[in-house]
Nucleic acid binder design. Structure first.
Lengths: 244, 244
DNA sequence: CGAATGTTTGAACCCTTTCAAAGACGGTGG
DNA sequence: CCACCGTCTTTGAAAGGGTTCAAACATTCG
């Protein structure tokens, strides 16, 4: 609360895709230096968000996509009964908000799980730029298609009836995504609570807790609070049914 | 088998988006007559598929998107253990294959559930056309975004822990989509088997069967083989948790 | 008509949920 | 620095719902 005045003064920071370490994962992937500079003129603002702060909420008018620069986000659906369902976790280099393109309003709320920074990508300007830069068009379509696939993979994860398979698949998914960003695939920090994991996987918090205990007892992983160490990546893969 | 020679002779049929009754649902939605004619030059072929025939299979190189002209399709994922998981059903006006854009190969197999016709949309040509027709760019992005949302809705459906909620949500989803195509929202034919419904919803065939029996006993629906009549749309909606 | 496929119904089992309570962690204030 | 408090996590026992296994029935299509 106290920190709001400080945050405001830091809200806008000059961004630069060209010098960003994530540019091979993010929207500028595959662009020439020249085209990246054009993109930089559109993606010219960064925004800081404190842990727990909303990037946007259900129903907000859609104006921009957001690339995660640093930090961690969750997106959630609000059911008619007040129930919250987490539909995705987003880490640096991933782009938020593409589901809103088709309806002009955000369908899901997005909240920072830790202090984070996003790059604003005003969509009207991006659309214009896509018409001008053919390779941006190509890469943007791949990005959207990748989001379609991420959704389908999550669905396949939820199709595993056994709770164990879901959690194993979840850990492996995190592992892969961390690895793609140059972090260890076997040792990482969970940014979300047990409850958020359970919600995401369609399981209760108690089941998540029991599973972590069991996996640890079996020596597959070590879990200390939010710190996860995977001891046997191969055996963990063997536990997952039909998801990758 | 015997019919293959016949099918081949009918395989290619001249298509026309301008005169297609689905053009407000499909790729040409919102295009001017002039732009639709340009699109017609690209979408110039139709393909007939017999029931049970594959449109494409996992691993096939990605070359075209396919708009369903008539009939019904399912898309399925093949798990490492040989398990099949149905990830989507597609009806006329819906576009197949957008998940493959990001990886250049089809990630899922697609099979006709009944004799069907699709319109070929060669993707390289579509990409070119998108660079030329701004409103096509706009509508194509909405189409992809819509596919992202369809996936998320399916995921929300699977999050309902109670089998009853999932089936209710499934019936409502079909109802809406039929209504959008000018068919009755309360009376329609299931194109898929109980097993396929169960697979899609993460339930067993027995559970689906029991649920239909129960819903019928409660007077909510009438089910005769594959013919469904919804008697109480409102009460059915009340059964679904957080999925619209 | 007959075989294959698809559907319905029953009973026992298993896993996750639910309900309950104790324990650990982290931040705040004295 | 430590005690306190709220939040998060762990663990236990009972209950519920869907699956599994089994068998009869219906439908479709050659």
């Amino acid at each position: 609360m106290r920190s709001i005045p400080i945050k405001v003064s830091l809200d806008s920071i000059k961004a630069s895709c060209g010098s960003c370490s994530l540019h091979e994962l993010c929207l500028p992937m595959g662009l020439s230096q020249e085209d990246t500079e054009l993109l930089d003129q559109t993606v010219n603002k960064r925004r800081k968000l404190a842990r727990g702060e909303h990037l946007y909420r259900v129903g907000d008018p859609f104006q921009a996509l957001y690339a995660v620069r640093s930090g961690f986000f969750k997106t959630l659906h609000l059911g008619g009964n007040g129930r919250e369902k987490i539909v995705g976790f987003y880490m640096p280099g991933e782009v938020l908000g593409m589901d809103a393109i088709s309806i002009d309003r955000h369908q899901y709320s997005t909240m920072a799980l830790e202090d984070s920074i996003v790059c604003d990508i005003p969509f009207a300007e991006l659309e214009h730029l896509i018409g001008v830069i053919p390779s941006l068009q190509y890469h943007f379509h791949r990005l959207m298609s990748g989001d379609i696939n991420a959704g389908k993979r999550h669905m396949l994860l939820l199709d595993n009836t056994r709770a164990e398979e879901r959690l194993a698949g979840f850990l492996l998914s995190l592992s892969q995504r961390f690895a793609a960003r140059g972090y260890s695939p076997t040792q990482f920090n969970l940014r979300m609570t047990r409850e958020e994991i359970g919600n995401y996987l369609g399981l209760t918090i108690e089941t998540i807790s029991r599973l972590f205990s069991r996996l640890q007892k079996e020596g597959l992983v070590n879990v200390q609070n939010r710190e996860v160490k995977i001891n046997d990546l191969v055996k963990l893969r063997g536990m997952v049914g039909h998801c990758d």
